[in-house]
Amino acid sequence: MGLLSRALELAGIASVVTSWLGSVTRLTKPPRATFTRLQRGATLGQPGDAAQQLRVLRATLALLEQDAPLAPITLAEE
């Protein structure tokens, strides 16, 4: 996803990725990213926890308003 995020940004489309595996996503140097400690297969939050999913979404989407590149933001979500 980090490489696709770069491809979109280079095409003039502001892009952002959220990842539970920041250690790997970070290596690709995406333009904007949030990192969590959520689990594989549940990237946006725990199943049934709409509030958590929306927190991750809002925090991630907010980065689109900022010029890139940005340092990845770590969210306290697990």
Binding site: A14, L27, K29, A62, A68
Partner: peptide
């Protein structure tokens, strides 16, 4: 081999409330 890049790419931010999102 994990893919790596040296530099992040950049671009301008956008007004989210006025933008179409994919």
């Amino acid at each position: 081999p994990r893919p790596r890049n040296q530099e992040a790419v950049g671009g301008p931010g956008i007004p989210l409330a006025e933008s179409r999102l994919l």
